[in-house]
Each structure stands twice: as structure tokens, then as C-alpha cells.
């Protein structure tokens, strides 16, 4: 079967599901972040696949660049927050962190 749009869409669907699984089952905050990165990557695959198969319109690729930019910003902020939480509560288990302050 010739590789076409549907192959890329199903690849991104599986990657998205794996990311969701990581986000909802892991208790380590950094693992949750990794799951979010997987989800963002799967969304990017969709954007670029649609851009390619809609007659090589580049708008999808432009949006993908913005997604990458926001992923970088999100990772930086989230890791700073996780480091602070670890400093305060001495754990990164998201189930144990239920208060905003000590």
C-alpha cells in the first residue's frame, strides 16, 4: 500500500495515545512533561502532513514552527516549577503535591 496521508495520520494518532498514556499513568512530574512533548510532536506531524497533502501549502509548516516555539517555552517554565517544587517538598510525585504553599 502506497504511503499516503492516512499513514501519517495513524502514526500521529498512535503517538498521541502513547503521550496521553504517559501523562495519566506516570507520577513523576518530569515523565508527565515527556508525555506532553510526545503529544505536541504528534500534533506537529498532523500539521505538516496536512500541509504536504493539501498541495504543499506552507501554512501548516508555519504553525508547526509556532508549536515548537511554545513547546520550548513550556518546557523551560515547567522544569523551573518542578525544580522549585522539589526544593520545597523534596518530591516530584504529582500525587503528593496538592498544596500551593507549605
Amino acid at each position: 500500500m502506497q504511503v499516503s496521508l492516512i499513514h501519517y495520520l495513524i502514526l500521529s494518532a498512535i503517538l498521541f495515545s502513547l503521550g496521553i498514556y504517559g501523562v495519566i499513568t506516570r507520577r513523576n512530574a518530569i515523565m508527565v512533561l515527556m508525555g506532553i512533548e510526545l503529544i505536541l510532536n504528534s500534533a506537529n506531524i498532523n500539521f505538516i502532513a496536512f500541509a504536504r497533502y493539501a498541495g504543499m501549502q506552507l501554512d501548516g509548516q508555519a504553525i508547526a514552527v509556532f508549536v515548537i516555539i511554545l513547546a520550548a517555552a513550556e518546557a523551560a517554565i515547567a522544569l523551573a516549577i518542578v525544580l522549585n517544587i522539589y526544593h520545597r517538598f523534596n518530591t516530584v510525585n504529582v500525587d503528593e503535591i496538592s498544596r500551593l504553599k507549605e
Binding site: I30, L33, E37, A75, L79, V82, L83, Y86, V92
Partner: peptide, 8 residues
């Protein structure tokens, strides 16, 4: 991420 893992 690796820094985060190492530091926490």
C-alpha cells in the same frame, strides 16, 4: 529534561 531528571 535531563537536567530536570538529574536535579530532582
Amino acid at each position: 529534561m535531563l537536567f530536570g531528571v538529574m536535579l530532582t
